[in-house]
Design a protein around this nucleic acid. Structure first.
Lengths: 233, 233
DNA sequence: CAGTGGTCTAGACCACGAG
DNA sequence: TCGTGGTCTAGACCACTGC
């Protein structure tokens, strides 16, 4: 009848989900214990536990010891989005990836970044400017600063065969970072690089990553017109 | 010695993580089978499985039947972003939230949405157009379609005291949906509503939610200039 | 204190897919 | 084809926390 067998954990999850979205169990209401559900479905408690744990991870139910499991009052709108390496994203579209390094030099960190990206005031950082292509059409424009104090190996890397993003992912694992999305208008330079009319609205992503307290890199990616970042929730 | 006991699944996960970031197991390299690891840690295979499953979910290892478990070559950059109810987001900024319903009527679904939002061709949907304010300054513009077949109660709701978003979150739980972010230019209407110069680049978010197979709502939020959606990774 | 979810075990069978 | 991860079981003990 249904897609999944009813005594597989996914099947049980689907049945529980049906009861939640179908209002059999009202928001805020406590649902039966694992043991009762296990008996109802004729399976081990472990299996019910697996299903409920999955629902709890997606935020649909709230579980507390001793207090039982309740249907969430405000199912939080959470989305996990995976920011792929551009090469993989492009290739997943069935297109050919290529990138080209436009500029590369050592320079002081621009003042705008001094707050978020703490390097010694007189230290130079590695600046990279590059363009990513899909089937020879511009896909994204990238500007990046790399902290050589944290990633000295970057100075020797050419970033021509392999993009800075991929190099860093493989050579400088980060512990945490910040990510931001926003919109900006194409200035003359962007307009030329991305083959877009001046003033076109472009989707942009900014990322800073750290290894412990040490900043690794600051990257700004600006995508060609029409780009949409999608995810399932 | 370590935070977690070594034969708890979290403890095992930490140990495996150490070996991965410490390059004991190189990227792309196959790691021992569950059975071997279980023997090494002196625990049941289920426990090792739990730890490995967790690492696989965060993308650090790739698991395939028969092929075994390998350290991921390009650990994907995953970010979980929480899409807050606008009222909460504004109030968290210490500003006063207000919203105003600009339009409300029944109309056929625009053809553009026919693909993603399957309603009977002759059925009307509830259309809402509203504006969200922070301290009396425009914060976001919203256009929304609600499928009355799935959420009949919406027809009776006024959406003046409580926003459609909040009403739906509490009255029509969804099972899944799609989310997209992109940039667009302010047309004359948007420009007037959001107090932005025509052509300004604006950050936009589109969301469709479903209860099972039934579409619930399609919403497009367009934020005032300068908006950044942030998250930690 | 006691009920509920969290976890672990030892064993078993199954499904997938690389070789 | 057959090794590997995926899942299920029945039972047990533990940890947390509301009553």
């Amino acid at each position: 009848m249904t897609v999944a067998d009813t005594n597989s954990w996914t099947g049980i999850r689907e049945e529980l989900l049906r009861r939640i979205v179908g209002r059999v169990w009202q928001p805020g209401e406590q649902i039966p214990h694992e043991a009762d559900l296990a008996e109802e479905f004729g399976c081990a408690r472990t299996t019910v536990n697996r299903a409920l744990r999955d629902l709890a991870e997606s935020g649909l139910v709230v579980r507390k010891r001793r207090a039982g499991t309740r249907v969430a009052l405000n199912p939080p709108q959470k989305a996990t989005l995976t920011i792929p390496v551009l090469r993989e994203e492009v290739e997943a579209l069935g297109r050919t990836y290529r990138h080209s390094l436009l500029e590369r030099d050592l320079r002081p960190l621009p003042p705008m970044l001094h707050g978020a990206f703490q390097v010694p005031p007189d230290a130079d950082v590695l600046y990279l400017k590059s363009l990513h292509f899909a089937d020879d059409r511009p896909y994204a424009f990238e500007e990046r600063y790399i902290n050589l104090a944290t990633v000295p190996g970057a100075q020797a890397a050419s970033f021509e065969a392999i993009s800075a993003n991929e190099w860093l992912v493989q050579n400088a694992p980060y512990s945490h970072g910040d990510l931001a999305f926003f919109a900006l208008s194409a200035d003359d330079d962007l307009s030329a690089q991305l083959d877009a009319a001046p003033g076109t609205a472009l989707f942009a992503m900014e990322r800073i990553t750290f290894a412990g307290e040490e900043p690794i890199t600051h990257a700004r990616l600006i995508f060609a017109p029409g780009y949409r970042m999608r995810t399932a929730i």
